[in-house]
C-alpha cells in the first residue's frame, strides 16, 4: 500500500446479478489531485464511488483511501471523506442552516470551526439560510450539498455527477470552487458525463462498461488523438450526414452542433473529390475545413473504434 496515494484500487469488481458493473479496475490517485471519472450512464462510475466511500462492498479486489481499507476500516473512511451523491440527499424539510448544523453535529464539529472552508460556497446561499432545502433552485441545492459534504473538513471529496441539471453559470461557479478547494490540499474525485468538464480536471479516466479505457491529463488525451478531424457545412445539413457516411474515404461521421465532423480512413482526404461528390448530390455553399479535436472527439473515436 502506497501511503503517498490518496486512493488505491486493486482489481475491483462488482456484479449486479450477471451484469458486470466494474471489471477488475486498478488505479491510484495522487494526493491533492482533481481527478475526473468521465463516462456514460452505466459505465460504473457510481458503483466505484460507492465502493470507495464504503457504502458498497466489492465482489472482488480491494480499495483504500489514505491507507484505510474501504471494507475493514470503514469507520475511519467515513470520517475522512466527504460525499455528494448524484441525487440531492439533504433534508428537504430542514432549512439551509439546519442541514448544515446537522452535518456538522454528526461529525462533532461546528459551522464556526470550519467556516473558512465553506465560506466561498456558503456565502452564495447564506442569505437564504432560513429557507427549506426543498425550496432551493438546482444551483443552490448543489452549493448546499457541497457545503454539507465539506463541513467536517474531509481529506478526500467524492462528487457523483454534481452538475447534472444545473445551468451553465452555476456549473462554471461550481468548477471554480473545486479549483479553490484544491489549494486547501483536498483530493477531489468527480464524475461527469460531460466532456467539457473533463478539461477542467488535472487528470481524467475515460470509463466504459466497468473499465478504464484511457487515463491521462486532458491535454495528453487530445494529443493522443492521432487522426485528422474535419468539419463540413452545407445548405442541406440534414442530408449531409448520410451523404458523408457513404463517401468511401471517410471512416467516422457525426453531427456536432451546426456542423458535421468526420475522420478520414487515411490521414487525409482528397478535398477536391469530396467537394465534387457533394456538389453532385446537390449541396451548395459547402464549407470544408480541418479542425482541432476536443476530448469529446477523442472519446467518441475510442468508443466507436473499440466496439
Amino acid at each position: 500500500m502506497n501511503s503517498e496515494m490518496a486512493v488505491c484500487a486493486n482489481a475491483l469488481s462488482k456484479f449486479y446479478q450477471d451484469k458486470k458493473a466494474l471489471d477488475s479496475l486498478s488505479f491510484e490517485i495522487e494526493m491533492g489531485s482533481l481527478f475526473g471519472f468521465i463516462g456514460p450512464d452505466g459505465a460504473g462510475k457510481t458503483s466505484l464511488f460507492r465502493i470507495l466511500n464504503s457504502l458498497l462492498i466489492p465482489d472482488g479486489g480491494t480499495a483504500s483511501i489514505l491507507g484505510f481499507d474501504t471494507v475493514k476500516d470503514y469507520k475511519q473512511i467515513r470520517r475522512i471523506i466527504g460525499y455528494m451523491p448524484g441525487r440531492f440527499s439533504l433534508y428537504q424539510d430542514l432549512t439551509v442552516e439546519e442541514n448544515l448544523k446537522f452535518f456538522a453535529g454528526i461529525f462533532k464539529t461546528t459551522i464556526k470551526e470550519n467556516y473558512h472552508l465553506i465560506e466561498d460556497i456558503y456565502r452564495h446561499i447564506e442569505p437564504f439560510k432560513n429557507r427549506k432545502a426543498g425550496k432551493l433552485s438546482g444551483g443552490m441545492k448543489q452549493k448546499l450539498a457541497l457545503s454539507c459534504a465539506l463541513i467536517h473538513k474531509p481529506e478526500v471529496l467524492i462528487l457523483d455527477e454534481p452538475t447534472t441539471g444545473v445551468d451553465a453559470v452555476s456549473r462554471g461557479e461550481f468548477w471554480e470552487m473545486l479549483q479553490k478547494l484544491k489549494t486547501q490540499n483536498i483530493t477531489i474525485l468527480v464524475s461527469t458525463p460531460y466532456m467539457d468538464e473533463a478539461s477542467l480536471c488535472d487528470e481524467v479516466a475515460l470509463m466504459q462498461e466497468g473499465k478504464i479505457m484511457q487515463r491521462a491529463t486532458p491535454e495528453r488525451i487530445i494529443e493522443a488523438f492521432n487522426e485528422t478531424l474535419w468539419s463540413v457545412q452545407s445548405d442541406k445539413m440534414f442530408e449531409l450526414l448520410s451523404h458523408l457516411s457513404s463517401f468511401p474515404e471517410i471512416r467516422l461521421v457525426y453531427r456536432s452542433g451546426d456542423h458535421i465532423c468526420f475522420i478520414p480512413r487515411k490521414q487525409s482526404v482528397e478535398e477536391k473529390n469530396l467537394l465534387a461528390y457533394l456538389e453532385n448530390l446537390g449541396h451548395q455553399s459547402v464549407k470544408l475545413k480541418q479542425i482541432k479535436p476536443t476530448i469529446e472527439d477523442s472519446f467518441i473515436y475510442q468508443m466507436q473504434t473499440q466496439n
Binding site: D41, T164, P193, M195, R255, I300, Q304
Partner: peptide, 21 residues
Amino acid sequence: DEPTGGVDPITRRQFWELIYE
C-alpha cells in the same frame, strides 16, 4: 424539457439525429 441529461456523447448524437429527422 431537458431531454438529454446524463448520456454519453454518442447516444446524445443519435438522439439529436432522431430530432433532426
